[in-house]
């Protein structure tokens, strides 16, 4: 089983995140990078599939040099090897371009199943899985909280407001996962020590047959027109309880449409 897990490095969720004024792209230098949280669940699921069915887990990351830290963590958790798509030409790519670039790599390296988190905490598009599946001409199984593979068939549970759907498709396929699917393991120290010996294949756009004109900020289909910094938190309202505290709280909540 050839399992590819897509891993994105995102700015630390808890840090103050900023856009760069010069090109309105994310400032990745000013904050620590971490593995996109949902992708950690995808890594765990890919390792569980490998443990149950044998095979190999390949990490696929598109991102700047710094993203190598996240690749290393994924390898420390137990993935076997990695492909790092890194090229200045990719800077500022939107989700359409990203899906094109990653699909090119996936075509090149081959796969039985591609797993990724259902969205990233930075851009929050949640569209990459669908676009990859479309470009690759394979089934998409979205928002999975359970994955089973049986021969050439993959079955998932897709979370929905009313419970879940059972979804079934033939391999190869693209699966996006939600956080309820598992509990990601910690990298073990042995895994961390072994990670540096695992192969990481660095590809530029030319290596992956990506047309440089079809990626990057200038050709993006979407554009960040403007942005404003989040306003500082306003001072809260203090309500003095003069026997009518409960009513005042209820009125406040109603005015904010919480109740």
């Amino acid at each position: 089983m050839n399992i590819v897990v897509c891993v994105k490095q995102v700015p630390d969720t808890w840090a103050e995140r900023k856009l760069r004024s010069e090109d309105k792209t994310l400032d990745r230098e000013s904050v620590d990078g971490v593995i996109n949280e949902l992708d950690e669940y995808a890594i765990e699921e890919s390792l569980r599939i490998k443990e149950a069915h044998d095979g190999e887990v390949t990490v696929l990351t598109m991102g700047p040099e710094k993203a190598a830290e996240s690749i290393r963590k994924a390898l420390s958790m137990g993935a076997d090897k990695a492909v790092h798509l890194v090229d200045d030409a990719l800077h500022g790519s939107d989700v359409l371009q990203t899906s094109y670039a990653m699909a090119q790599v996936l075509r090149k390296i081959g796969f039985d199943v591609v797993i990724l988190g259902s969205e990233s905490t930075d851009a929050r598009m949640g569209a990459l899985a669908a676009m990859l599946a479309e470009r690759l001409g394979v089934a998409q199984l979205s928002l999975a909280n359970k994955v089973e593979i049986d021969g050439g068939t993959i079955r998932t549970q897709r979370v929905a407001d009313y419970g879940f759907d059972r979804v079934e498709a033939s391999l190869p396929a693209v699966v996006s996962v939600v956080e309820k699917i598992n509990e990601p393991r910690y990298p073990s120290f042995k895994g961390i020590m072994a990670a540096k010996k695992k192969p990481v294949d660095k590809l530029g756009v030319a290596d992956a047959d990506i047309d440089a004109a079809k990626v990057g900020l200038t050709g993006a289909a979407t554009e960040v027109v403007d942005f404003v910094a989040a306003p500082p938190r306003e001072k809260g309202t203090i309500v003095k309880d003069e026997g009518d505290g409960g009513q005042k709280v209820a009125e406040f909540l109603a005015s904010k449409k919480f109740i």
Partner: peptide, 14 residues
Amino acid sequence: GDEERLIRDTVCTF
């Protein structure tokens, strides 16, 4: 080093 940082972060998260 990368390895040292990853070990530290792993224990910190745990």
